[in-house]
Nucleic acid binder design. Sequence first.
DNA 1: TAGTTGACCGGAA
DNA 2: ATTCCGGCCAACT
Length: 87
Amino acid sequence: MTFTKKVLEVVKTIPRGQTMSYCQVAALAGNKKAARVVGTILSKNYDPAIPCHRVIRATGQLGKYNRGADKKAALLKQEKQENYRPQ
DNA sequence: TAGTTGACCGGAA
DNA sequence: ATTCCGGCCAACT
């Protein structure tokens, strides 16, 4: 299992309405200092099974998104709302 | 092939 | 409080 795969797996396991920082993902993937790599991988990896929009910066900022930061914010907001109202 | 860049983070000055 | 530096791995030139 390479770091890249691990990162993708970790991001895949992020629950709905919940966000995780690149640092967290990197730590779970095995390398706490590889937050940068996480961003690189996610930016390249287009995959509907990988909710990269749930990965934000450790400072609380949303950071960037391959489909637009606006979409990221909107999706997160929506998911949070849906999390508050299941089904 | 080698060097640079990049959706980042933490610590130091 | 802000600004700078090192570290990690993948993709691009």
